[in-house]
């Protein structure tokens, strides 16, 4: 079973919820994997760390143009949908902008003169960490300056053991990195906060998930801040409210130090266990 923890807005508590769910699953003896899919800013290991037992670099192919063989016809530049090949016909100038390349291979097909080959470019790393006998963390981490973390995210998701309960800590937003993550899940937990920003972004994420037909429920974090509009909206749209976590400076403090609430507080441990049961019921 694969569960993504996501939100349109950043900083609502995705990592907070996913690390605590992982913790209670592990302690209950459920074989579990947590995949940190926020490859631009991975934070799971700030909370749970283990020995890396497997690590691999993720690369993509980028074209290399051999200007000796190139006849400067410009067809590769025409074929490129990402403006990654700059071609100035008059000047016999042609250049690959590696950052814009999506590794689609169209330029290779376009070139009839064998002037294009490919080389590897580093995008990031995927690391698997041992946490317990049946518990592991997989971290996707993109290199700084890389445009798209999507290939790194996809690889990390593929590494997860399909027989384990798997959580994906999703990247924020509603564009490609988010889609690459949630589209692989059976159920999505959207974490929001009861503020106008939280609600606005929740609506966008909900709309996106409906479009790709993935079931979801909502956790309201920092309950007590803001107003009741989020609850009214959930009610009106028949979206399940999975849990509420109150706003509490002590929770913020525990979180800020990289500690797990479920480990520190018996009452919250039970609430996360309850949340896990609710999610498993809805996801099957």
């Amino acid at each position: 079973m694969k569960i993504a923890i996501a939100s349109g807005k950043g900083g609502t508590g995705k990592t907070f919820v996913s690390t605590n769910l992982f913790e209670v699953a592990q302690k209950t003896g459920i074989p579990v994997t947590l995949v940190d899919c926020d490859a631009e800013e991975p934070n799971v290991t700030e909370f749970i760390d283990g020995d890396v037992f497997y690590s691999r670099t993720i690369t993509q192919k980028v074209p290399v143009i051999n200007t000796e063989q190139c006849v400067f016809c410009g067809k590769c530049s025409d074929y490129c949908s990402y403006n990654a090949i700059v071609f100035v016909p008059g000047n016999r100038f042609i250049k690959v902008v590696e950052d814009l390349c999506h590794d689609c291979g169209a330029c290779l097909v376009a070139c009839r003169y064998g002037a294009i080959t490919e080389e590897r470019k580093l995008l990031g790393m995927v690391k698997s960490m041992y946490i317990g006998p049946h518990a592991e963390i997989i971290e996707a981490r993109a290199e700084v300056g890389v445009y798209s973390p999507v290939p790194v995210i996809k690889k990390a998701i593929k590494e997860a053991n399909s027989r384990y309960l798997t959580f994906f800590d999703s990247p924020p937003g509603i564009s490609c990195p988010f889609i690459a993550t949630v589209s692989q899940a059976d159920f999505v937990v959207l974490v929001t906060e009861p503020t106008p920003f939280g609600l606005n972004d929740l609506k966008l994420s909900a709309e996106t998930l409906r479009e790709i037909s993935i079931p979801f429920g909502v956790v309201v974090n920092r309950a007590g801040l803001g107003n009741r509009e989020v609850y009214d909206w959930l009610d009106k749209n028949g979206i399940p409210l999975l849990a509420e976590i109150p706003f509490d400076r002590e929770i913020a403090r525990i979180y800020s130090q990289g500690r797990l609430l479920a480990e520190e507080d018996e009452n919250y441990r039970r609430q996360f266990e309850e949340l896990l049961r609710t999610i498993k019921k809805l996801a099957t």
Binding site: A142, G145, V146, Y147, G173
Partner: peptide
């Protein structure tokens, strides 16, 4: 700005 360090941030 957007969060993260990827394409929209760049």
């Amino acid at each position: 700005g957007p969060p993260g360090i990827g394409c929209p941030v760049i």
